Amino acid sequence: MSQIPNDPAGTTQQFENFARQTPQQPVKTSGVNMGLVIGVVAVVAVVAVAAIAFMMV
């Protein structure tokens, strides 16, 4: 008696449906937040200018 092979990963149609699906949420990359870096640099520059102006008075 021959048995039908059982594919534990599913059928070809199930895989094709899965492959056609679009991601539900966009993939977020973990990188440097440029807005945060620019903000920190701006704050440091303003504090440095204020410190220099305060020392000159």
Rank of each mutant, 00 (worst) to 15 (best):
V47D: 13
I52V: 13
T11Y: 07
V43I: 15
L36P: 00
L36V: 08
V46F: 15
D7N: 15
A42R: 11
V40M: 14
I52Y: 10
A48D: 11
M55E: 09
N33S: 04
A53P: 01
G35E: 03
Q3V: 02
V41N: 07
A50E: 05
A9P: 00
V44D: 04
M56E: 03
T12Y: 03
M1S: 11
T12Q: 05
P26E: 13
Q21W: 01
A50K: 06
M34H: 01
V57M: 15
N6R: 14
S30M: 12
V32W: 02
K28P: 00
R20L: 13
G35P: 04
V41C: 11
G10M: 02
Q13F: 01
F54Q: 10
G35I: 01
T29P: 01
T22W: 02
Q14W: 12
G35N: 06
A45F: 02
N17C: 07
G35D: 08
V40F: 11
V32A: 14
V49L: 15
L36R: 08
V27S: 00
G35C: 03
T29L: 14
A53I: 12
M34I: 09
M56W: 11
A53D: 09
F15E: 02
S30Y: 13
A53G: 13
F15L: 05
V44W: 03
P23C: 06
F15T: 04
A42P: 10
Q3D: 06
V41D: 05
A9D: 09
S30I: 12
V46Y: 14
D7P: 06
Q21A: 15
F54W: 15
S2H: 12
V37E: 02
Q24E: 12
A42D: 07
Q25C: 03
V41K: 05
V47N: 13
Q21P: 04
Q13N: 11
T29E: 13
Q13K: 09
T29C: 07
P23D: 07
V32F: 06
S2T: 07
V44T: 09
V49H: 09
V46G: 04
R20D: 04
V32C: 07
V41T: 06
V27C: 01
V46N: 08
G35S: 08
F54D: 08
